[in-house]
Design a protein around this nucleic acid. Structure first.
Lengths: 152, 152
DNA sequence: CAGTATACGACAATGATTTTCATGTGCGGT
DNA sequence: ACCGCACATGAAAATCATTGTCGTATACTG
């Protein structure tokens, strides 16, 4: 199930449950809401374990992460597609998130790293905007009821 | 001094001091260390004011911001060059940060936004790696004494 | 120079994430 | 199967940058 890398950590029921719950979500979820979802679903799992598991998944490259644009740096997780990591365009109002094609950026990163001579260069790219349904009209704008959860 | 935009906020001694202190720093600084530097320098200024001023500067586009790569999402500020915003390649070990040429990415962002039809698309791009002086040798690696502060 | 909207600072509050530590459990070796 | 131990777990406390509160001070308008 964890496939790509050597097994550096144990496979336990909780971790499997966290991973499964993550896959069951549309789009990005926070650790907190993932925990809530699990508990609601009848899975007895501690908040710490959810956080720890998400960290493991992140370190292993199995999830993509975006951070809340405003202050507190809350993190949202999403299972990473098998064919490599992605970058996302997220609506500031309703949380709709779309994976975007980013080969151009990947090449740019590689070139910068090579030119400057840094090793092990990682990159973070986040795009935020307003989707079609959340028009920028200065009047009549209402917060989208769906919250920041959906993905396409 | 604030030049580019209409004066939407008062020019006060504290704000001038914060901006000056920011320019006096090499590379990125956190709000906390900027405050410490100010106080050490004999400038009586509250922490809240430093935070508020940095927020104003950020909103006005006068500073660039990067966020700590690990958990807490701490923010680091740097005066933005006059000719527009920049993206940075930051060394994970010593904090050395270099502004990189990013026109390719700017164009990519514009194209994505246009193709997908989002409005007011903002982007965040952060590159982290290991600079020349912080070799990846598995043994003998020592944390750089300079901390995460320098820039070129 | 007065009036008022804004800025200021000390301190409390926030809130996601991490740590602690006592207890439970996967898994390799026998 | 059984042991042993390193690792996993969770409840609660700790962390800590950042933001809110609110009474006071000060910049700016007329």
């Amino acid at each position: 199930m964890y496939g790509t890398a050597r097994s550096e950590w144990r496979t336990t029921p909780r971790r499997a449950a966290v991973l499964e719950a993550l896959h069951a979500c549309d789009g990005f979820v926070s650790a907190q809401s993932l925990h809530t979802a699990l508990v609601t679903d009848g899975v007895a799992v501690g908040l710490s374990t959810v956080y720890r598991t998400l960290r493991l998944l992140e370190a292993a490259g199995h999830v993509d992460v975006v951070r809340d644009s405003d202050g507190d740096g809350e993190r949202f997780y999403r299972p990473r597609p098998d064919d490599g990591h992605r970058h996302y365009l997220v609506c500031r109002e309703c949380g709709l998130s779309l994976a975007v094609e980013s080969e151009e950026v990947e090449r740019w990163v590689a070139r910068i790293a090579r030119d400057i001579g840094f090793h092990s260069v990682d990159h973070t790219v986040e795009l935020t905007g307003m989707c079609d349904g959340c028009r920028p009209g200065p009047v009549d704008r209402r917060p989208h009821p769906a919250g920041r959860a959906r993905v396409v």
